[in-house]
């Protein structure tokens, strides 16, 4: 029952890879946006907040279609990226990673923002009176204190990215070994006669990965919190 075919192993590996790269690449921007939303006051903030949360409420197919329009080979950003840097998203695993990043982004930003909002700003003031500039204070005080929340945000976004289906299949299709992630592979299995066993195997793997991610994040968050508490 649990002997995997090469295609299935490919799908599992690709899924982990695509989700990891997508989340890792979006982390710096996610932290910046979370910081801006948590700390800055400016007109149009509510709009930025809404924009960040859009992928959470839009049908994933719409998000995928927008990605196709923007980052496709003929899309405004996609054409420019290919010309300038030779980076292509459409029908490549990089596109799947982009879709994963976009879909995980709201969850990541939300968790990091909450964590930043609950860190004690008086400690940042104390740091500044001791000679640390804003950037140094951020890295020495704010970031370590917000770490449990940042980890939680990363894992949530990762789990969301792993499960991403609609936007991925719309944006980069379902190409074995390139863009066929776990959900796409499961979907494919359900569409062919006799594919039930494969679908079931991959579904179990998906559940195991999700469960492991949640347990690891909880343990990491606890350990980090314990380290901060001393």
């Amino acid at each position: 029952m649990f002997s995997f075919s090469a295609d299935e192993i490919d799908a599992i590996r690709l899924s982990l890879w695509v989700a990891s790269i997508g989340i890792a690449a979006s982390l710096p921007l996610g932290m910046f946006v979370a910081y801006v939303l948590a700390r800055w006051r400016f007109p149009g903030k509510i709009l930025l907040d809404a924009l960040v949360h859009m992928p959470l409420v839009l049908p994933p197919v719409v998000t995928g279609y927008i990605l196709l329009l923007l980052f496709g080979r003929k899309g405004a950003i996609g054409a420019w990226l290919e010309e300038t840097f030779g980076i292509v998203f459409s029908f490549r695993w990089t596109g799947a990673a982009l879709a994963a990043a976009v879909m995980g982004f709201p969850l990541m930003v939300r968790a990091i923002r909450l964590s930043l909002e609950s860190t004690d700003r008086r400690l940042e003031d104390a740091s500044r009176t001791l000679g640390a500039g804003r950037l140094v204070t951020f890295f020495l005080i704010t970031l370590p204190l917000a770490l449990p929340g940042i980890i939680a945000g990363l894992v949530l976004a990762f789990a969301k990215a792993l499960g991403e289906f609609g936007a991925t299949i719309t944006f980069v299709s379902n190409i074995p070994g390139e863009t066929r992630t776990l959900p796409s592979a499961i979907y494919t299995f359900t569409q062919i006669p006799g594919g039930d066993a494969g679908a079931f195997r991959l579904a179990v793997i998906a559940m195991i990965i999700a469960l492991a991610a949640l347990v690891i994040s909880e343990l990491l968050a606890r350990r980090t919190a314990a380290r901060i508490d001393g």
Binding site: R122, A126, S127, P144, L145, I228, D229
Partner: peptide, 8 residues
């Protein structure tokens, strides 16, 4: 007043 030591 509340010392504000860095807990980490």
């Amino acid at each position: 007043q509340e010392s504000r030591l860095f807990p980490h």
